[in-house]
Simulated scan of single mutants.
Amino acid sequence: MDLVDNDTFLTKLSDLFAHTTRKGSVWLTHKRYVHEGEDIKMNGGGEEDGMEFSVLLRATDGHTKFSTRISPNDLEKYHSAYGTLLKKSMSTLRKRDRKREKLRADLQAQREKRLMEDIKVDGPKRGNGRRKRQRQVKALRKQQEQREVIQRAMEASRQRQAAAEHPAEETS
């Protein structure tokens, strides 16, 4: 991983965004930079002791990796330039393809509609058409079982919701 200065990081990041406009992702990581070899106290944090920490920014697209360290004095100036770059790169993002989502929602609505409509059992019990009637009876039983499963799930959901709204009061 390359550690570069702040201006180089911004130019490399804009190049990375330009490279991944059609396909690909960019991962950005922000961390507090801790110097190696220093003893860190966990009891109250560094801000109370008057210490100021640098910020470490990392960027990668899976192949190219680079990072920069920003001192606390340059943080405001750097974040304004960094924010401008992010806003510019976000405006070039592609719109989500909602066709597939709409298709899935329509299929789910059709399944629910079919589940709510009763299956009609008709035909003779014996003779011609017997197998058709048996298939209809089997489908009706399956539909009733699915309705019962959905009913139990809804009941359990209601109970969980009621328990969350009115938690049991502890007595000590």
Rank of each mutant, 00 (worst) to 15 (best):
M1P: 14
L3W: 09
D5S: 14
D7S: 15
T8K: 09
T8A: 09
F9E: 06
K12S: 10
L13F: 04
L13W: 05
D15T: 00
F17M: 07
F17Q: 07
F17P: 04
A18R: 05
K23M: 01
K23R: 04
K23E: 06
S25M: 03
V26D: 07
V26S: 07
W27C: 05
W27M: 08
L28G: 07
L28T: 09
K31H: 11
R32Q: 08
R32H: 03
R32G: 05
H35F: 07
H35W: 06
G37F: 03
D39E: 09
D39K: 10
K41R: 13
G44H: 13
G45T: 13
G46C: 01
E48P: 00
D49G: 06
G50N: 13
M51A: 11
E52K: 15
F53E: 15
F53Y: 10
V55H: 08
L56Q: 11
L57E: 12
L57Y: 10
R58A: 04
R58H: 10
A59C: 08
T60W: 12
T60A: 03
G62K: 06
H63V: 13
F66N: 07
S67W: 03
I70M: 04
I70E: 11
S71Y: 08
S71N: 11
D74S: 15
E76F: 07
K77T: 10
K77V: 09
Y78L: 12
S80M: 12
G83S: 14
T84M: 13
L85E: 05
L86D: 04
L86M: 14
L86N: 04
L86V: 09
S89P: 10
S89H: 04
M90T: 00
R96A: 09
R96T: 02
E101H: 08
K102F: 01
K102Y: 00
L103T: 14
L103K: 14
A105P: 01
A105F: 02
D106E: 13
D106H: 05
Q108P: 02
Q108H: 15
A109G: 04
A109L: 02
A109H: 06
Q110F: 06
Q110D: 10
Q110P: 00
K113M: 06
K113D: 07
E117Q: 13
E117A: 10
D118P: 15
I119Y: 06
I119A: 03
K120G: 00
V121G: 01
D122Q: 11
D122P: 07
G123R: 02
G123Q: 09
G123D: 12
N128W: 12
G129Q: 11
R131L: 10
R131Q: 15
R131S: 05
R131H: 02
Q134C: 01
R135K: 06
R135Y: 01
Q136H: 02
Q136P: 02
V137Q: 14
K138T: 11
K138L: 07
K138A: 15
A139D: 14
L140R: 15
L140N: 03
R141G: 03
E145W: 02
E145R: 06
E145G: 04
R147K: 15
R147I: 03
R147Y: 00
E155P: 00
S157W: 08
Q159D: 10
Q161W: 06
E165M: 04
E165V: 03
H166Q: 12
P167W: 03
E169Y: 08
E170A: 12
E170M: 03
T171A: 09
